[in-house]
């Protein structure tokens, strides 16, 4: 990277040509008849202490990317380097160990918490799994975590159903923090919440980032939320990273036609601003049978002849601003 302020900061996570395919079974013998290319050749890196936002519409592969990094899914190809170490093929104990450093916050605060466990147990479980601490220390630690995420101490003895969506998301965050991880993957952490509660959770995540020295991979479909949270933003389309840049140049000067359309499509909460809107034709194609060449060319207003044949590579067109488009 040529950005001088970031020179000393090392990469916490580096993704190289990551591919995650879901096999499609068919026929009498349930043989693999095709692949859903959910993530198809994606590369990026996250520096220590930064927040990288991943945006894109449903089915673009942003969640699959997150789940592959935390190794809930196995990569089909490519490398995931965490602190310089390849974790793509880790298994057993070594994989367990790496999960202390990478934790996840899920979208649905209703489905991701065990209804049979007390909140205290939910938050304590990761610590019990990895560390040998006395019951007293454990309880103190959990109480401390609960206060840090803004829950009352008596939340310890309650069950998840007794809390509202926003508070449940706080429980999920406390659980993710329990092992003091280095990287947190937040997959649509606020999309199930109302605006007033959403802002509470976003503010909390920002506060915790400084307090716990965290690095975030922030996955969301809402570009305004991602811009608010991230230092850099990656835009995905149909399993591909089409553009990646720091948040201000992504917003001020989006280069990829898809990013331009995406930004222009967001309804602005300002009635005086009437902007030119690029309305895309059609829907996102199926990742089972993606178009040849550039995945965006069937909907692209700037498509040229070569776009349907050659898939553009992600290349740096300005310092820190990479785009995968034949226009550049």
């Amino acid at each position: 990277m040529s950005n001088t302020s970031l020179v000393e900061k090392e990469n916490l996570l580096e993704i190289k040509n990551l591919k995650t395919y879901y096999p499609v079974k068919g026929g009498f013998f349930r043989r693999t008849v095709g692949n859903v290319k959910a993530v198809d050749d994606v590369s990026f890196e996250i520096k220590k202490g930064e927040t990288l936002g991943l945006v894109g519409e449903s089915g673009c592969g942003k969640s699959t990317t997150g789940r592959t990094i935390i190794r809930l899914l196995n990569a089909t190809d490519g490398e995931i380097l965490f602190e310089g170490k390849d974790i793509t093929k880790l298994r057993g104990k070594t994989l367990q160990a790496i999960r202390q450093d990478i934790q996840m916050v899920f979208q649905d605060p209703y489905a991701s918490l065990n209804p049979m466990q007390m909140v205290g147990e939910i938050v304590a479980e990761p610590i019990k799994n990895f560390k040998n601490v006395s019951t007293k220390d454990l309880k103190e630690d959990v109480m401390d975590l609960l206060t840090k995420v803004g829950l009352p101490e008596d939340a310890y003895y309650k069950y998840a159903h007794e809390f509202s969506g926003g508070q449940r998301q706080r429980i999920g965050i406390a659980r993710a923090l329990a092992l003091r991880p280095k990287l947190i993957i937040a997959d649509e952490p606020v999309s199930a919440l109302d605006v007033s509660v959403q802002s509470q959770v976003l503010n909390l995540l920002k506060k915790l980032q400084t307090e716990f020295d965290l690095t975030f991979l922030f996955i969301a479909h809402d570009l305004s939320v991602v811009k608010h949270m991230s230092d850099r933003i990656g835009v995905m389309y149909l399993g591909n990273m089409v553009e990646i840049a720091d948040r201000n140049s992504m917003y001020a000067e989006p280069l990829h036609p898809y990013t331009q359309a995406l930004i222009s499509a967001i309804p602005m909460p300002d009635p005086r601003r009437k902007k030119e809107r690029i309305v895309l034709e059609g829907d996102v194609p199926s990742p089972l049978n993606p178009p040849t060449g550039c995945p965006f060319h069937p909907r692209c207003p700037a498509a040229m002849a070569e776009c349907s044949q050659v898939k553009p590579a992600l290349k740096e067109v300005k310092p820190g601003h990479r785009v995968a488009c034949h226009l550049y």
Binding site: E57, S58, H221, L223, A261, L262, S264, A265, I266, P267, R277, V279, L280, D283, V284
Partner: peptide, 11 residues
């Protein structure tokens, strides 16, 4: 709906 589709429907 996704934002690009939302834009179509609102229009």
């Amino acid at each position: 709906l996704d934002v690009t589709v939302q834009a179509q429907i609102l229009e």
